[in-house]
């Protein structure tokens, strides 16, 4: 088990290197090349271009450039934002925290509701409830998150005035945990819907399979109550699959956060990326992709290890 975990841990190193090469390459796709990308508006001055080129070694061969860039990035230096004229890292890390809060909130929704929905639809297979729930998940998974966000915002914030429509904390008074949670309810739910639908569907089909396994019948024959058959026996064997799919969904939650943050004015990475798109702030965008991917890789590693730990047959291999 430990050896295996070590192998998995080692395997993310080449992945992270690959990710860094891809993000490094992004700036080279910008028309005019990386020097222009890093200067933004100032690129019209040839002297500035020459200065940046020299300073960052952009006239050196590509591998050297990559190495220089990677060394700076590992040291927390992602360059200067061409839009905000401050170091990107000072923009990035506070926003990352906000996005992680949003993503975590979405993840809680997706796991709790998705799992409960998956289990109950499996228990009431082919019932009206099952059909409606499956239709709901299918529609939820076929709709753009920002559209769902707008509908929720219109209904609960504008019409019913139950929840705040914008921001992360209340404008009045000091920011409290409670006010963050209140602001989190809508955007996190909007962002969770697709992941929730996917988890519900995976859990449902895995539960349908698990519920007819001989060990569930045997548990019943030994006099165990229904909830133990379902939760302790059937669901326990669905758990590795559920965790696996949940880990994969985290990437989509990060992607969805981008849109949801725009709709709900959530001051996170997504909103930062949105502003970077509008302002063509390539440097900020590049750093955001690198950071989010890094977090995603680590989350998936954690999900992978959790899955291994939960499957005794797999763990002994």
């Amino acid at each position: 088990m430990l050896l295996y975990a070590g192998q998995r841990l080692a395997a993310i190193v080449p992945t992270l290197i690959g990710v860094s090469i891809v993000t490094f390459g992004l700036l080279h796709l910008v028309p005019g090349g990386p020097a222009v990308a890093m200067l933004g508006m100032a690129a019209s001055d040839p002297k500035a271009v020459a200065a940046v080129t020299r300073e960052l070694g952009l006239d050196r061969p590509l591998p050297t450039q990559y190495w220089l860039w990677l060394r700076r990035a590992l040291g927390g230096d992602f360059g200067m934002s061409t839009e905000f004229h401050v170091p990107v890292s000072s923009l990035l890390f506070p926003k990352l925290e906000h996005t992680l809060i949003l993503t975590a909130g979405s993840l809680v929704y997706a796991i709790v509701i998705g799992t409960i929905l998956g289990i109950t639809t499996a228990l009431y297979h082919r019932s009206l409830f099952d059909r409606l729930a499956m239709l709901f998940t299918l529609i939820g998974a076929s709709a753009p998150v920002f559209w769902i966000g707008l509908l929720l915002s219109y209904l609960f914030a504008i019409k019913l005035r139950l929840l705040p429509a914008l921001g992360m904390t209340s404008v009045l008074g000091p920011p409290t945990v409670l006010s963050v949670l209140e602001h989190l309810i809508l955007p996190a739910f909007a962002n969770a819907i697709i992941a929730l639908a996917v988890i519900a569907r995976i859990v449902r089909s895995a539960m349908l399979e698990a519920l007819v396994q001989p060990y569930v019948l045997a548990a019943r024959a030994r006099g165990l109550p229904r909830w133990r058959q379902v939760v302790v026996h059937a669901f326990r064997n669905v758990l590795p699959d559920a965790i696996n799919i949940t880990g994969l969904q985290v990437g989509f939650l990060f992607g969805g956060a981008l849109f949801v943050e725009v709709v709900f004015g959530w001051p996170g990475l997504g909103y930062l990326i949105y502003s970077s798109i509008q302002a063509r702030d390539y440097v900020t965008m590049q750093a955001a992709v690198l950071i989010v991917s890094g977090v995603f890789v680590i989350v998936n590693l954690a999900a992978d290890l959790a899955r291994l730990a939960l499957d005794p047959r797999e763990a002994r291999r």
């Binding site: 690959g18 891809v22 989509f252 990060f254 992607g255 969805g256 992709v289 989010v292 991917s293």
Partner: peptide, 8 residues
Amino acid sequence: FAIPMVLL
């Protein structure tokens, strides 16, 4: 796969 699809 390691880079969230939408973001990439």
